[in-house]
Amino acid sequence: MKKSLLALMLMGSFATFGIAATTLLDKATQEDIARHRAMATAHENAAKCLESGKSDEVCEKQLQVECKGLAIGKFCGMKHTH
């Protein structure tokens, strides 16, 4: 019984710490996190575009539209070899 209670208390404190850490992030960090998530979504959409059989040019244009204002460069902050 004591072990179960201790486990519940530890889980509660970890959950509280996790919530506190999230709220302690400054606005700039939160905005940076949001940009990274948006870029990741845009890249996932580009991968799905390519999987659907569309050309690289079409998918790159879609990526550029989705990433406008998010990252530096026309490849949404990421470029790789083909």
Rank of each mutant, 00 (worst) to 15 (best):
M9Q: 11
K61F: 06
A46C: 09
I72C: 03
H82T: 10
G73N: 01
E57W: 13
M78K: 12
T41I: 11
S52V: 05
H82M: 11
L63V: 01
M39T: 04
N45T: 15
K54F: 10
T16M: 14
E57I: 06
V58R: 09
T22D: 13
L24N: 02
L10P: 03
A28P: 01
G53A: 03
G77S: 11
Q64D: 03
N45P: 01
M9F: 13
I33S: 05
L5F: 14
M39Q: 06
M11Y: 04
L25T: 02
K61T: 08
R35A: 10
F75C: 13
R35S: 07
I33Q: 13
K79G: 06
A15V: 12
A47D: 07
D26M: 04
A20M: 07
L6M: 10
H80V: 15
E60K: 15
H36G: 07
E60M: 14
C49M: 08
D26S: 10
T23H: 07
L8Q: 02
A47N: 12
M9P: 00
C59Q: 04
G12T: 13
T41H: 05
G12N: 01
S4I: 11
L63P: 00
K27E: 15
L10M: 12
M1D: 06
E60L: 12
L5I: 15
F14M: 04
D26E: 09
A15W: 06
F75I: 11
A40H: 05
I33H: 10
A47C: 13
M11T: 12
N45E: 12
G53D: 00
K54L: 11
V65I: 14
K79T: 05
A71M: 03
T81I: 14
F17R: 08
K74T: 10
A20Y: 04
D56H: 15
H82I: 15
G73T: 09
H80K: 15
H43C: 10
R37P: 04
F14N: 03
E57K: 14
L24F: 09
L50K: 07
G53K: 03
F17S: 11
K79C: 04
K61G: 06
K2I: 08
D26Q: 02
L63E: 00
L6A: 11
C49T: 04
L10V: 05
C76L: 05
V65P: 00
M1K: 08
D56M: 14
K2R: 12
K54R: 14
H80P: 07
C76Y: 02
K79F: 02
M39E: 06
K61I: 08
K68S: 14
A21S: 12
F17E: 03
T23P: 01
A34S: 06
H80F: 13
M1Y: 07
G12S: 10
A28Y: 04
D56Q: 14
G73I: 02
A38M: 09
E51K: 15
M9V: 15
Q62E: 09
A71C: 05
A38C: 01
K3T: 13
L5E: 08
D26A: 02
R35H: 01
A46Y: 12
L8K: 03
Q64H: 10
A7W: 11
F17V: 13
